[in-house]
Amino acid sequence: MKLTIEEVRHVAALARIGMTDAELELMRDQLSHILESFDALGQVDTDGVEPTRHSVDVDSVMRDDEVRDSLLREDVLANAPSKEGDFVRVRAVLGDH
């Protein structure tokens, strides 16, 4: 089953990755080819089988509510592409900016 170009465009929008028309076409071919190689999985009998999300049992992990050192603000902000004072600067979310 080959994906349609609309499906690929929809997935790219969900993943928030901009793509040119040529990139969408290539992705369509490659994803379709990869998905075909998964076909046999549908034939495996998994009636009554529980899914495994983690290979070790992970329950909610609790810890004491104690004060610990956190990272230095200057160190953390040093990596922000755009900042103003002690704040990370973001672009306009709505409308013109």
């Binding site: 997935v11 990755i17 992705m27 994803l31 495996v44 998994t46 899914p51 495994t52």
Partner: peptide, 28 residues
């Protein structure tokens, strides 16, 4: 490619056929 593949496998309508199925076979 991997982000696209994963996004597809988790998207509405395909989650059961891909992601959930894979987790069950993972158990096996």
């Amino acid at each position: 490619r991997r982000i696209m593949l994963g996004t597809y496998a988790l998207s509405t309508g395909y989650y059961d056929a891909y992601y959930l199925k894979a987790q069950k076979v993972r158990t096996l």
